[in-house]
Amino acid sequence: MTSGLTVLAIDFGAWTPDDWSAAATVVTAILTLATVGIALFAALYAKQQVDLARQLREEQAQPFVVVDFADNPVTRKGIDFVVENMGQTLAKNVKITVDPPFSSTLDSAGYPLRDAPLITQGIPSLPPRKRITALFDMAPQRYAAELPMKYTVTVRFEDSHGGAQEPLTYILDLSVRHNLLYPTEYGISDAAEALREVSKTLKETRGDLKNEFYRRRQAESANNGSSSAE
Rank of each mutant, 00 (worst) to 15 (best):
E230D: 09
A14G: 07
Q62C: 06
P183T: 06
D190P: 00
V176Q: 06
V98G: 01
R177I: 00
R131E: 12
K77H: 10
E204Y: 03
V27A: 09
F41I: 15
W20D: 10
R142E: 00
A194K: 12
D11R: 08
T28M: 04
V82I: 13
K47F: 11
R131F: 08
D173W: 01
G37L: 14
P127W: 05
L209R: 08
M149F: 03
A34H: 07
T152E: 12
Q60W: 12
E230H: 07
G78C: 04
S226G: 02
A14L: 10
A222N: 11
K92W: 02
E204I: 07
A34P: 02
A14W: 04
R114G: 00
V98Q: 04
P167Q: 09
A23H: 03
D80M: 03
R217I: 07
L202A: 11
F12H: 08
L5K: 13
S108I: 14
A9E: 12
Y182S: 03
S125V: 02
R114S: 09
E58P: 01
K47N: 12
R131K: 15
R114I: 08
R114A: 15
E166L: 09
A70R: 01
M149T: 05
D137L: 00
G162D: 09
K77L: 11
A219T: 09
D68T: 13
S189K: 06
A61W: 01
A116Q: 14
F213D: 11
